[in-house]
């Protein structure tokens, strides 16, 4: 059995940041493995380690520049077997990759790999489209389930029994026929830390890099009817009173406030 995990390197914004043009200035960004994908990688690796699943191969796929390899290696260090990264000058030059472009790129790799199961994240922490996994499933013509926080796989029957986490503490119990794309929610498992041994091994695991031609696509994949026109810091809706001063001073202000409110009588 083969499990493909979509892994994105996400950008985190520093407390103090600046915007240049239509994006956050590079100097204000740090990069990390997307939190949701970390859970997806863990879920795949746990399936590969489970009894009776010793023939499970875990492959990660990332659309991203060379910089993303640090993140990809992290996924390998946590137990994925090999990795695919797709990038191209045409992608580098695009203003941004819209949903459709990403689904098309990921689908091109998935069609090549023919996985039995694709695990994706519910959302990318930076873009927060929350849509790539389901769009990918539709493109591949396979089943799917979004926002999965529990997964039991019956590989022989070809069914994944999942729980979909709905709003307000309600979970939906659903059976999904394989092959399928599941978008993984945080909390489904306990992602491991990469061990030193894992990190060493990851250096030797295969990481293939493909350009557009390699995956059978061309530059038109970045053509998009959607164009980013602005990025700005939102004007604060609230008018929060910010207490200033030393920790002692601000704690005292807050304490006085809570006393005034009658929260505590002391």
């Amino acid at each position: 059995m083969k499990i493909l995990v979509t892994v994105k390197e996400v950008a985190e914004v520093d407390d103090e940041f600046s915007i240049s043009g239509l994006d956050i200035d590079e100097s204000s960004l740090e990069y990390d493995l997307n939190e949701w994908d970390d859970y997806a990688v863990e879920e795949a690796v746990q399936l590969s380690e489970a009894d009776g699943h010793d023939d499970v191969e875990v492959v990660t796929v990332t659309v991203g520049p060379e910089r993303a390899e640090e993140t990809v290696r992290m996924a390998l260090a946590k137990g994925a077997d090999r990795a695919v990264r797709v990038w191209d000058d045409a992608l580098e030059e695009a203003q941004f990759l819209d949903l459709d472009a990403k689904a098309e790129l990921l689908a091109a790799v998935a069609e090549e790999e023919e996985p039995d199961l694709v695990l994706s994240g519910v959302q990318a922490a930076d873009d927060a489209n929350g849509a790539t996994g389901v769009a990918l499933a539709e493109r591949l013509g396979v089943e799917w389930a979004a926002v999965v926080n529990s997964l039991e796989l019956d590989a022989d029957a070809g069914v994944a029994s999942v729980r979909r986490e709905l709003e307000g503490g309600v979970e939906e119990l659903t059976d999904v026929e394989l092959p399928a794309v599941l978008t993984i929610q945080t909390g489904i498992n306990e992602p491991r830390y990469a061990s030193l041994r894992g990190i060493r091994q990851a250096q030797r695991k295969p990481l293939e890099v493909y350009d557009l031609e390699d995956v059978g696509l061309d530059e038109s994949v970045v053509d998009s009817p959607v164009e980013r026109t602005d990025m700005y810091e939102p004007e604060s809706e609230g008018d929060a009173t910010v207490w200033e001063g030393s920790s002692e001073d601000t704690a005292e202000e807050l304490a006085d406030f809570l006393r005034d409110k009658g929260v505590v009588d002391a």
Binding site: V13, I19, D126, A128, D230, Y232
Partner: peptide, 17 residues
């Protein structure tokens, strides 16, 4: 208009379709 980067910024997108 939508939010990005954990709500730290807002972005606008023009959809020409």
């Amino acid at each position: 208009t939508r939010e990005q980067y954990g709500g730290k910024v807002e972005t606008t997108y023009d959809v020409d379709a």
